[in-house]
Design a protein around this nucleic acid. Sequence first.
DNA 1: TATGAATGAGTATTCATTCAT
DNA 2: CATGAATGAATACTCATTCAT
Lengths: 205, 205, 205, 205
Amino acid sequence: MSPKIVDKEEKRLLIAHAAFSVFGNKGFDRTRMDDVATAAGVGKGTLYEYFDNKEDLLVGAMRVMMDGMTDGMRGALENDSPPLDKLRGLTVFMVEAMEHMGEGYRFFLEYMLHISRAGNDFPILKEMLLEFRKGIEDLLVAGVKSGDLRKDLDIVNTAATFAAWFDGAVFHWIAVPQGPSMSEMADAYMDTFFNGILDRKGGRK
Amino acid sequence: MSPKIVDKEEKRLLIAHAAFSVFGNKGFDRTRMDDVATAAGVGKGTLYEYFDNKEDLLVGAMRVMMDGMTDGMRGALENDSPPLDKLRGLTVFMVEAMEHMGEGYRFFLEYMLHISRAGNDFPILKEMLLEFRKGIEDLLVAGVKSGDLRKDLDIVNTAATFAAWFDGAVFHWIAVPQGPSMSEMADAYMDTFFNGILDRKGGRK
Amino acid sequence: MSPKIVDKEEKRLLIAHAAFSVFGNKGFDRTRMDDVATAAGVGKGTLYEYFDNKEDLLVGAMRVMMDGMTDGMRGALENDSPPLDKLRGLTVFMVEAMEHMGEGYRFFLEYMLHISRAGNDFPILKEMLLEFRKGIEDLLVAGVKSGDLRKDLDIVNTAATFAAWFDGAVFHWIAVPQGPSMSEMADAYMDTFFNGILDRKGGRK
Amino acid sequence: MSPKIVDKEEKRLLIAHAAFSVFGNKGFDRTRMDDVATAAGVGKGTLYEYFDNKEDLLVGAMRVMMDGMTDGMRGALENDSPPLDKLRGLTVFMVEAMEHMGEGYRFFLEYMLHISRAGNDFPILKEMLLEFRKGIEDLLVAGVKSGDLRKDLDIVNTAATFAAWFDGAVFHWIAVPQGPSMSEMADAYMDTFFNGILDRKGGRK
DNA sequence: TATGAATGAGTATTCATTCAT
DNA sequence: CATGAATGAATACTCATTCAT
């Protein structure tokens, strides 16, 4: 309520954004606190007023990113389109988000690696992932119910596989920038995901 | 001439293997040369007899892994099975290789991030990736020719998408070990990749 | 603005003095940064706040010493005594300075060796040396003009020779401390330098 | 007597020469045993067959140089010329030796600094120095006796001063190679040493 | 005897964190 | 609250010395 609290919260956010950007560009270990301070336009000591340490800063930066992603994902899911359209809409949103964040998304990958290594659970990350998978599962179930999708789909694993694909795609896009763009990959992926690669003119094999 | 008879090539390989393992577990920046030396059972100074510096050691370790992968991939492709079986065989090989390498594969991901960040081209990596994609493209083309696959497939991007999926899957498997196993994801992926998710009892949509 | 009020220039000087002393005692290569830090009463990291690296620290220390020498030399030269008295005064000043700096002067010798090896020009050093020689040349010229000195003197080389002698003398004094003192050598040198060693009772040879 | 002994001695000398050259170029601390081994054309381990350690190698190299110098000096002194000619001859020999050794002489300076720092007496060095001074003292005494030189000379300190001058000259010659050559300095030095700088047309001052 | 592969003690430098102002 | 000067733990890399062959 007090104006001070607002200020603090705002500054925390400012720093987290700066950290998000720098971590994405240089990687966690290669980033110096000085870099973050400079990027945020504050003194190095100030970082420690808002975050306990470098690790905590990483978590804060992560949270910033995930809040944005989660909001966007919800937007793509909470509307009245039919399930298949929602699925396409979600894909389009994800691809745009990833392309928009560009280097920043690398931060996400880096962080997943980092967490899994440290053995720390980062609940927020898992929640987001699970929420993402759950959203897809719901769409698949709705699609099956509506008769659009095959009844024999392995819902859970198909949803997991779908979610995983996105990270694989960004990964390659980032690591081999000379290769196909995110949208090209997404188009090809959606095509096979919906239709499969088998020829069915003569009926099912 | 040489007082101590040593198979330098063998020792280099021994060290590269150790490095591969340690880098995979701890990440490049978190790994100390001492860790690698201990893992390899040699003195720290010995590392520098065989590798110029830490970065060079990373490259050496990478090469070890990739040689293994490339050999395995070729084995999965060079046989007389029909294209679709080869595609399944390749997938099975990849999944098994990834599960077998486990933590080690993380090293691969880490390295791709590392390279893309450094801006260095690591030609060997790109070659492997391109060889992988090319192998898949060939299979798809063969499948189209044999009439098994849809004639309208976007070969290049579909191959890229397929290749990317693997890394996405390991990525999630490593980052969220509580989730589905590699094989479960692979089964679901292959199912949708071949058949799509659309219901076609009533004919094509 | 600045949280800790520090006179950075003063601290830089403090460190340079410490470095000067330690380098003189142990030599450049034998000196550890820790030694300098301890001698300066600061942490090792602090050295790097004020100097880029060990080499830079060496240059800084050198500058400290040379400023002192140059000031003293100017003092010995800028007065109204006749040229020969100035020459004696300069010699006395140099001998006293060298004896006073003692071990520290070794630093100067060490540094000259160091520079010439590195092939770097250290302009400050050369300037001081040239200024020293020039001062002597001026005295010699003045002495010739006043009729006190021989008209056929090779001014430039005699000045160079005179300047060189000082370093030779300290060199021996430092390397063979059991030998004659600086003042004893200086007395003998001045005697021969002024009068030569030839007997002239019977007239010039 | 046995040929082995001859071989060993020869090889020791070979190595010492190589060491002398490398130490002179790079300085003691900057020289690696590998450098010496390569320069000598032997394996690194072989150095330790002939010398206990790096320090011992330094001493050996020093001895090589000094033997050469001492022999030359004796040659310049042991003949039937009058004392003043011997003095000139000695100077000429020294200057030529120094110019000839060039970089190698730096080794001598470096070593004097090194010894004095270590606090070790290096008797051979002192003996050579003392022999040098003694030789000069004898010449001066002889010159006085023959009536060529002033009877009031401070023999000991003048000899010391004369010996010191050489090292000062090489020092400047090495450190400031743009300056006058050794011979130019030597000519100027001898001129003042013999005749002084005072004008005596009007008789002694 | 000669060698050079192996070693690990030693050191310059970096950078997260603290804390006096 | 904000700052940045100070710090020292941490770490890649070097090189004299050893010793198996």
